[in-house]
């Protein structure tokens, strides 16, 4: 069984879908035409680059290249996760924490599955570790961004309540415990929703990709099950680490909330 290749001219036809969205944006005066245009170009350029990059990588596999690419992906994910945290201490201070939270979640999700479940030879075979690692890093990035954004914003709004708890003898951890729980629940909810609806509502990308390229559906499904469970671990571990780091950044050594702005 082979899969159907898409020649470049026919790929351009897909741009019609973007034209449709741009047209609607203009009609409804959403002002998103520029963002849509830029996003379209970026997606095409980035995906084409990674396509050729992976081709090169698979042709000349080397641990250095594979881990180098994964490191670059992790750094971009960490940087991106700190970009929209208006109440946080800023990208420069958040970045190392985001890096550890994203790497921690992704590593815990990916390494055991590579070593004991999927078992490619070698275990870091780029054909497996890069697409799966990418999915995990992307998910970790969103979870970390969401936890950071939410906890720092909540700490600003709920500052009087947190200080009242501290004034009553609460430890910093106790004073923000309800907000930590809410942020973590918020981070895990989409993943849990994904678990309960997968196969009913969504046929995820990895699985559909394998089916399109000719894999047996029942095998593609097994991969997808592994992926779904990995995503749960990523959300839990990266979310937990991000929340713990945010909590640490919220307080000074004197068990005080950091001064605003």
């Amino acid at each position: 069984m082979t899969y159907l290749e898409i020649p470049a001219p026919r790929l351009a036809l897909a741009l019609g879908l973007i034209a449709l969205a741009i047209g609607l944006s203009r009609l409804a005066r959403l002002g998103l035409e520029r963002d849509l245009g830029l996003g379209t170009v970026r997606a095409a350029v980035q995906l084409t680059a990674i396509g050729y990059g992976l081709r090169l990588l698979f042709a000349h596999p080397s641990p250095l290249a594979i881990f180098g690419l994964l490191a670059l992906m992790t750094a971009v994910a960490a940087f991106t996760s700190t970009r929209r945290v208006p109440d946080g201490p800023g990208t420069r201070e958040l970045f190392p924490y985001a890096l550890v939270a994203i790497l921690g979640g992704a590593a815990i999700a990916v390494l055991p599955m590579m070593l004991f479940v999927i078992r490619p030879k070698p275990w870091f075979d780029g054909r497996y570790v890069i697409p799966i690692g990418g999915m995990m890093l992307s998910s970790a990035m969103n979870v970390v961004a969401q936890v950071f954004e939410r906890l720092f914003a909540t700490a600003r709004v709920e500052r009087p309540v947190i200080e009242q708890a501290l004034a009553l003898g609460a430890t910093p951890a106790q004073s923000v415990a309800p907000y930590m729980r809410a942020a973590l629940r918020g981070a895990l909810t989409p993943t849990i929703n994904g678990l309960v609806t997968v196969g009913l509502v969504a046929l995820p990308g990895m699985m559909t990709g394998q089916i399109v390229s000719g894999a047996a559906p029942e095998q593609a499904v097994r991969y997808q099950i592994v992926i779904m469970y990995q995503l749960v671990a990523v959300a839990a571990v990266s979310g937990y680490l991000a929340a713990a780091f945010a909590r640490r950044l919220l307080f000074t050594s004197g068990a005080r909330l950091r001064a605003e702005g």
């Binding site: 009087p160 004034a167 009553l168 068990a255």
Partner: peptide
């Protein structure tokens, strides 16, 4: 500080 704050209670 938690011990101190328990003994010196602040009411905003």
């Amino acid at each position: 500080l938690p011990d101190y704050r328990r003994q010196v209670a602040y009411v905003p």
